[in-house]
């Protein structure tokens, strides 16, 4: 899977989990750019991504992700 496909799949997960069908994400997008992505919904998004890509994030990985680009880096490193 190339990075663009991964980005597209993460976008679908975020749209579905946060119920924001119109949201568009880019490598530089951060949680604060996306309506509804706050500390309460953060883990829901992460769990959905883990389930989709069949992997587990460590706590350190989860808190050190600063934007979608670093999220994609972490997913890539686990595949």
């Amino acid at each position: 899977m190339n990075r663009q496909q991964m980005l597209s799949q993460v976008e679908d997960i975020i749209r579905h989990t946060l119920k924001q069908p119109d949201v568009c994400i880019f490598e530089q997008t951060t949680a604060s750019d996306i309506p509804g992505w706050d500390s309460l919904s953060h883990m829901t998004v992460m769990v959905a991504i883990e389930a989709h890509f069949n992997m587990k994030f460590s706590f350190m990985e989860m808190i050190s992700m600063s934007d979608i680009g670093s999220l994609l880096d972490t997913i890539s490193s686990k595949q």
Binding site: S39, L40, H42, M43, T44, M46, V47, F59, M62, I63
Partner: peptide, 25 residues
């Protein structure tokens, strides 16, 4: 409390779904 308590708790209880969020909150 969000960064040093809530997020670690939420991480530990994430498999519990809504019950995990309730516990952490």
């Amino acid at each position: 409390v969000r960064d040093y308590l809530f997020l670690p708790l939420q991480y530990q209880t994430r498999a519990w779904g809504k019950a995990g969020l309730t516990t952490a909150t």
